[in-house]
Structures are given as C-alpha cells and as structure tokens.
Design a protein around this nucleic acid. Structure first.
Lengths: 112, 112
DNA sequence: CCGCATCCTATCCGATACTG
DNA sequence: CAGTATCGGATAGGATGCGG
C-alpha cells in the first residue's frame, strides 16, 4: 500500500493513461452503450473528433484489448468496433468519475 | 444518461482533467496518507518531480479546493499542504483506478 | 525553504488533402 | 467507407538559474 505512494510503484498511472486521451472516455461510453459500431457510426456520434484522432485512439484501445476491431473485406469496406469484456471492467471507473463530475459541477456553481 | 455519450455533456472529462496531471495522483495519494505535509516533504516523497511542476500542480489542486495551502510567515518560510474533505471524496476513484491498474498489469504479464 | 522566470523540447491535436 | 500523409500550432513538461 505504502509502495503506491512512490511514483515508480504507483498502479494508478497506467489506467489513467488509458483513459486520458482527449476522446477516449467518450469513445468508450459510446461503445459500452452500443457495440459493435462501424467507424462512421462512432464518428457520427462524436462529431467534433477528427478522423485522424478517432483512428488513433481506436487503435490504442485495440492494442490494449479494451475494444476489438473487425475488418470485413467488402466493398465498400466495413470495420466494426466493439467493447471487450475486459473493456467493460472500466465501467465502474467511468461511473465513479461520472458521479464525481456531477458533484464537482454542482460545487462550482454554488461557490460562485 | 444518453446525454453523456455526447462529448459536450459528458461529465467524465472534468474529473479526469483534475487527475490527469502527470504527478497529480501521486501527490494526492501522499497527501491522503499524510496531511499536512510541507513542500519539501512532498518533494522528498516524489523525488523525480521538478520544483516547478510540483508548485504548479499543487496550485491547481488548491484552486479546485482539493487541497489547502497554508503559509506560515516564518524564517525560513514554511508552507503546508493538506487534503480537504472534498479532496477525500476522490479516494474511491483512486482506489478503483488502483485496483484496475493491478489487474491490468497482471493481464499484460500473462499475455506475453 | 519555497517558488518564480526563462528557455527549450516533445508530444498532442487539429486542419487539410489524398487513397484503396 | 475507412482510412493514411503531411503540415503546423498549442501545450505539457524538463532544465536551469534567480529571489525573498
């Protein structure tokens, strides 16, 4: 336990780095809500993200086995992304963050 | 609920931004474990952080009322930082991240 | 002891254009 | 449809030195 107060042993950083992409939480929330989704569907759900960033973050999540990427060799091409069971284990964290965020917002409003 | 799938309404981002400084979680874990701490004590507990970054992140946490900063007008100067009750409400989140991080590490080891 | 100012670098991220 | 390639700005963060 005390070990985790040392940065080198702290296990908190890695999950944070996974979630810390600017768009990662929103991507994950969408895929947790609807899986699978095509690339274009995710893009439509998050209009402000660029294709480049969406591709990049999806690939990062895939490499950590938090989502899957399935390519269907059709014309036109189809690529579907889905949350994995492992990715679902992030749900409690996102929930906790969500609840805290709501309280934090209330606090900011009442304090000014 | 569905609103939160839209980036503009998602309440997950703000708490993440609070925690997302490179050193924020380690600083908070230390202050949750020991409060108050002098600036130099925190620095000693996290040797790799630079003074600049430590100062910066402490001030950010202070501005969000997650920690307090108390200056004692002595010679030599003494400045003490302590977690606030509000800051303590982040503990479940850090715990959840911590547990997930441990499992994630196990998974990475067994998969190679 | 505590912190600010300056300079520098790396990386993130957006905009845009192009491709199988 | 689902990308890749390239450019460029913004920002985070490190190194170093000065100051009350």
């Amino acid at each position: 336990m005390i070990d985790d107060l040392q940065p080198s042993h702290c296990k908190v950083k890695e999950p944070l780095e996974i979630l810390l992409g600017k768009w990662t939480p929103v991507i994950l929330l969408n895929l947790m809500h609807t899986s699978p989704m095509r690339f274009s569907e995710v893009k439509r759900a998050i209009p402000d993200i660029t294709q480049k960033m969406l591709t990049k973050q999806l690939r990062e999540l895939e490499s950590q086995e938090i989502i899957t990427r399935e390519v269907y060799p059709e014309v036109p091409p189809r690529v579907e992304y889905a949350i994995t069971p492992y990715g679902r284990t992030l749900e409690p964290i996102l929930d906790a963050l969500h609840k805290w965020g709501i309280e934090h917002k209330k606090r900011l409003q009442s304090s000014h």
